[in-house]
Simulated scan of single mutants.
Amino acid sequence: MAVHNGTVYLAGQVPDDATLDIRGQTREVLAMVDRLLAEAGTDKRHLLMAQIFLPDLADFDGMNEVWDAWVPAGHAPPRATVQAALARPGWKIEIVVTAALPQPRA
């Protein structure tokens, strides 16, 4: 993770448990995103962009179901989902996000 000029950049987050199906791996990765954003002082309501990498586009619907339940209504960021080979064969998903730090209240 890097924080610069009020913006939080997360590296690609991948699952710890490669035995889970796409829904389980997506939940696990989004929980990692939540933890890292909290550590930086922000949350998913402040997402600016997301990139999702799937080795198998047949997993798109399962991933999207979990993603849609996770993103707060009215706060869905611009998102790209692409097919890509990932570094480990058991990984079904990798997610990269960028988020803003909340502005201090006056």
Score class of each variant (00 low, 15 high):
residue 21 D to L: 03
residue 28 E to L: 14
residue 94 E to T: 05
residue 7 T to F: 12
residue 20 L to T: 15
residue 7 T to K: 05
residue 28 E to K: 05
residue 72 P to A: 15
residue 72 P to Q: 09
residue 35 R to F: 01
residue 68 D to E: 09
residue 9 Y to H: 11
residue 17 D to C: 03
residue 89 P to A: 07
residue 35 R to C: 11
residue 17 D to Q: 12
residue 104 P to R: 10
residue 95 I to R: 06
residue 53 F to G: 08
residue 19 T to L: 05
residue 33 V to M: 14
residue 69 A to G: 01
residue 68 D to W: 09
residue 100 A to T: 12
residue 16 D to N: 08
residue 72 P to V: 11
residue 69 A to V: 05
residue 43 D to A: 07
residue 14 V to E: 05
residue 49 M to G: 09
residue 37 L to E: 03
residue 91 W to A: 07
residue 75 H to S: 11
residue 106 A to L: 13
residue 42 T to V: 13
residue 16 D to W: 02
residue 100 A to C: 10
residue 98 T to C: 07
residue 62 G to W: 00
residue 83 Q to Y: 01
residue 86 L to H: 08
residue 97 V to M: 13
residue 31 A to Q: 08
residue 94 E to W: 02
residue 85 A to T: 05
residue 27 R to M: 15
residue 98 T to D: 05
residue 106 A to F: 09
residue 24 G to Y: 06
residue 93 I to N: 14
residue 65 E to L: 09
residue 43 D to G: 11
residue 35 R to S: 08
residue 54 L to N: 03
residue 14 V to G: 10
residue 90 G to M: 10
residue 102 P to E: 13
residue 17 D to W: 04
residue 25 Q to E: 00
residue 52 I to M: 06
residue 52 I to P: 04
residue 105 R to D: 09
residue 29 V to Y: 15
residue 44 K to Y: 03
residue 100 A to S: 14
residue 64 N to E: 05
residue 72 P to F: 14
residue 26 T to G: 04
residue 72 P to H: 07
residue 106 A to V: 12
residue 77 P to M: 08
residue 16 D to Y: 06
residue 88 R to M: 11
residue 105 R to E: 09
residue 99 A to I: 04
residue 49 M to H: 11
residue 27 R to I: 11
residue 45 R to D: 00
residue 32 M to G: 13
residue 76 A to P: 00
residue 82 V to A: 08
residue 97 V to I: 11
residue 27 R to S: 15
residue 2 A to N: 10
residue 6 G to T: 15
residue 57 L to T: 08
residue 93 I to V: 14
residue 42 T to R: 04
residue 16 D to R: 00
residue 33 V to R: 02
residue 29 V to F: 12
residue 79 R to I: 06
residue 47 L to C: 12
residue 46 H to I: 01
residue 15 P to Q: 07
residue 97 V to E: 12
residue 2 A to E: 10
residue 64 N to H: 11
residue 8 V to S: 03
residue 78 P to Q: 00
residue 102 P to M: 11
residue 1 M to E: 05
residue 103 Q to Y: 06
residue 33 V to Y: 02
residue 73 A to N: 13
residue 45 R to S: 02
residue 82 V to Q: 01
residue 39 E to N: 06
residue 44 K to T: 10
residue 103 Q to C: 06
residue 99 A to N: 03
residue 35 R to K: 14
residue 89 P to D: 08
residue 56 D to Y: 05
residue 48 L to F: 05
residue 106 A to E: 12
residue 65 E to F: 06
residue 75 H to L: 00
residue 38 A to M: 10
residue 89 P to G: 04
residue 106 A to N: 14
residue 19 T to W: 03
residue 3 V to Y: 01
residue 68 D to K: 06
residue 97 V to G: 09
residue 56 D to R: 04
residue 97 V to K: 10
residue 74 G to T: 03
residue 100 A to Y: 15
residue 54 L to G: 02
residue 23 R to A: 07
residue 59 D to G: 04
residue 25 Q to S: 13
residue 30 L to T: 12
residue 81 T to G: 12
residue 79 R to M: 05
residue 52 I to R: 03
residue 82 V to L: 12
residue 85 A to D: 15
residue 1 M to N: 04
residue 82 V to K: 04
residue 69 A to C: 02
residue 49 M to N: 09
residue 94 E to H: 10
residue 78 P to Y: 02
residue 102 P to V: 07
residue 23 R to W: 00
residue 37 L to Y: 10
residue 106 A to Y: 09
residue 74 G to H: 03
